[in-house]
């Protein structure tokens, strides 16, 4: 079953002055439980594509249906709520809230969702155990390694029980060991809990783990391979 349907997606920046066609007519579907990597050279439109999938950028043309909802037709307010409840984000630079502990960072989105304290604590514990950080509950990000921070970021992305997770270059700032460890955890979550992961990456290790590899070039799909 498709959870994301992308139809004739275009994105043109600076349309009036110096138009840059970042994404050109992309048609793609993602099924539940996919572990997909979007690859391509710098400037190929990976990040723009992922931003549009995440509702952070609006397409110039085309539509994105997530669970049969056209996210481009949502008001800004509804889009923020939609992101909070349906999409998990993992960023290249971890982007944790530095003044909160690992536990509080994971709890944060559930707090925004208005979930009960008991519910939040249970899920936070569960998620931090899943990313092997059960012993770092009360540690702030500056006391964690890059790999540990990114694992907290994965736990945070999963906290809201999203339909899928968008990970923009998640391993770019990590050493090999941490990257391998992170990928292993994400693969395990995908395999055992059917969580859908969509990566944009340059990292061959991510591509090697991915079961679907979409190559973008000059804003267009060059190849879409199921491994």
């Amino acid at each position: 079953m498709n959870i994301i349907e992308v139809k004739k997606l275009h994105k043109i920046y600076d349309q009036d002055t110096h138009p840059v066609h970042a994404v050109r007519g992309v048609d793609l579907n993602f099924k539940e439980g996919e572990f997909a990597a979007v690859v391509g050279p710098s400037g190929s439109g990976k990040t723009t594509f992922l931003n549009m999938l995440g509702g952070l950028d609006d397409p110039t043309e085309g539509e994105i249906m997530i669970d049969s909802v056209n996210i481009n037709e949502l008001s800004n307010r509804k889009k923020i709520n939609f992101r909070m409840n349906h999409i998990g984000f993992v960023f290249q630079a971890y982007n944790l809230i530095p003044v909160l502990t690992a536990k509080e960072n994971v709890e944060f989105i559930m707090h925004l969702q208005g979930r009960s304290k008991h519910d939040r604590e249970l899920r936070t514990k569960e998620l931090l155990e899943a990313v092997d950080l059960a012993d770092k509950l009360n540690v702030r990000p500056n006391k964690l390694s890059g790999g540990q921070q990114q694992r907290v970021a994965v736990a945070r992305a999963l906290a809201s029980k999203p339909k899928f997770i968008l990970a923009d270059e998640p391993t770019a700032n990590l050493d090999s060991k941490s990257a391998a460890n992170l990928l292993e955890i994400m693969e395990k979550l995908n395999r055992e809990e059917h969580i859908t992961f969509i990566f944009s990456t340059h990292d061959q290790r991510v591509v090697d783990k991915a079961r679907r590899v979409i190559t973008l070039d000059d804003g267009m799909i060059k190849s879409d391979v199921q491994v």
């Binding site: 952070l56 923020i80 992101r83 909070m84 984000f89 925004l112 969702q113 809201s160």
Partner: peptide
Amino acid sequence: MLMAVGMNK
């Protein structure tokens, strides 16, 4: 990031 993950205005 806060806005991206769902913190409204």
